[in-house]
């Protein structure tokens, strides 16, 4: 079997062609990688360094501040309502007086014409 010089390299390429790995190769690598992955570790973190603790503290602070603030807001609102009611009553009484004066004037003029 004589190989020509120019064919030698192509024969070598054919002989050394890439070979596919076994079908379960990727699955085996993934399984080994999964086994390597570090398991979640329980580390003791001081309470003051936990975000949840900060959230809880903030919540508690808000809860402590909001009720007095809310009651103050309610008191002011009631005062404003009372003031508005007083102003409305005053306006109504002024209107009633004006209407009475107008009616009296109209009646007076009507009598004079008649």
């Amino acid at each position: 079997m004589k190989i020509h010089e120019e064919d030698f390299e192509s024969e070598l390429r054919a002989a050394l062609r890439a070979e596919a790995p076994p079908e379960d190769f990727a699955a085996k690598v993934l399984a080994r990688a999964a086994a390597l992955s570090p398991k979640p570790q329980v580390i003791a973190i001081p309470l003051w360094r936990k975000p949840a603790a900060w959230a809880l503290a903030a919540g508690l602070a808000v809860a402590a501040v909001i009720p007095p603030a809310a009651s103050e807001y309610q008191r002011r609102r009631e005062l404003r309502a009372l003031e508005a009611r007083r102003e409305l009553l005053l306006a109504l009484s002024i209107t009633r007086a004006k209407l009475r004066q107008t009616r009296e004037r109209v009646q007076k003029n009507t009598r004079r014409i008649l």
């Binding site: 050394l16 890439a18 070979e19 596919a20 790995p21 076994p22 190769f25 085996k28 690598v29 080994r32």
Partner: peptide
């Protein structure tokens, strides 16, 4: 590429597979 190079070099299928996985 990885498995094939290992296989042609070490000339042992099981060994090449282990090496490629590594």
């Amino acid at each position: 590429m990885v498995f094939s190079l290992a296989l042609r070099f070490v000339r042992d299928r099981a060994g090449a597979e282990e090496l490629a996985q590594d």
